[in-house]
């Protein structure tokens, strides 16, 4: 029964994909090393099992440095998200603020924000603070824009209903607009979370003492002898980005469980 359900589960294809990919990786790595004999073969594509072993061996260090990155990205993310929500609420309440801020919020989405990282690092010259600033800045606008979209998506009849109850403005926000905007808020948060991690790592590469980016760079400069460690740090960086996204997805399920996607049945494809 259990094995049967696993076979039919939607995760099976994904599992096969991952295993297949790892097998191909291992195979290509072997080919580069022994058949084609490319120079620096192990640096270009190291054996999976070697990388896994390194990951395991240095898991303590990797966890510690990854944690530093994640922590700073997280603080910046939370500050940026809070500021974004605040701006969105202000924009939804005041036409003037909206007109002032909205064009800049949209334009900021069109420019390469990450390009600011070195400049901010240049101004602040403090790795902790600049990581927080970059993560916060990157989080701010997607959250503000998506939150505003959520606030605007409120059904007109629902607002009229509140009006018919003679509800006070704060009650309209608290009981109606904020809950209704939660799905929008979470789409912003899910976009912003991996970006915040990327931003934090980027600042570390600019020159810092701690963080996954630092050991990534260090092992890259140490050359081929540290290639497994380098690849491990890349994997940890990737996992941090994916983890940040998953945390937001989980939070969404807890905070806004009424959405159509979370309903049982239907939508099973």
């Amino acid at each position: 029964m259990k094995g049967n359900s696993l076979l039919r589960s939607r995760y099976l294809p994904l599992l096969v994909w991952i295993c297949g990919l790892l097998a191909v990786w291992e195979g290509v790595s072997w080919m580069l090393l022994h058949v084609v004999q490319t120079p620096l073969a192990q640096s270009k594509l190291p054996y999976v099992h070697e990388v896994a072993a390194t990951l395991w061996k240095y898991s303590g260090t990797l966890l510690k440095e990854g944690g530093a990155t994640f922590g700073n990205a997280g603080i910046g993310f939370l500050i940026g998200a809070a500021a974004g929500v605040l701006l969105a609420v202000l924009m939804s309440m005041s036409r003037i603020i909206e007109r002032l801020a909205f064009p800049y919020a949209v334009a900021s989405q069109m420019i390469p924000i990450l390009g600011l990282a070195p400049i901010i690092y240049g101004i602040v010259r403090d790795e902790q603070v600049s990581r927080v600033i970059i993560s916060g800045y990157i989080t701010f606008f997607p959250v503000a824009l998506n939150m505003l979209r959520g606030l605007r998506s409120v059904d007109l009849s629902a607002v009229e209903l509140m009006h018919s109850y003679a509800a006070r403005p704060w009650a309209v926000y608290w009981k109606l607009k904020l809950p209704a905007a939660l799905p929008g808020l979470f789409s912003g948060l899910k976009i912003a979370a991996p970006l915040a991690v990327t931003g934090a790592i980027l600042v570390e590469l600019m020159g810092a003492q701690h963080g996954i980016g630092v050991i990534m760079l260090r092992n890259l400069y140490y050359g081929p002898s540290h290639t497994y460690m380098f690849w491990s740090t890349v994997l940890v960086g990737a996992l941090l980005g994916i983890a940040s996204y998953w945390i937001m997805t989980l939070a969404e399920r807890l905070a806004a469980p009424w959405q159509p996607e979370f309903r049982p049945k239907g939508g099973d494809r």
Binding site: D155, S157, A158, E160, L161, M162, S164, Y165, A166, A167, A171, K175, L176, P179, A180, L182, A256, W258, Q259
Partner: peptide, 29 residues
């Protein structure tokens, strides 16, 4: 609050259980 109103669509709040939808006006009062 002399009148209650019903629209063409139910306009229920997705995030509230049925009983909490019903008592929304009372909550506001």
């Amino acid at each position: 609050q002399k009148y209650g109103i019903v629209f063409q669509s139910p306009v229920l709040y997705d995030w509230r259980k049925v009983k909490h939808n019903i008592t929304l006006p009372l909550e506001l009062m």
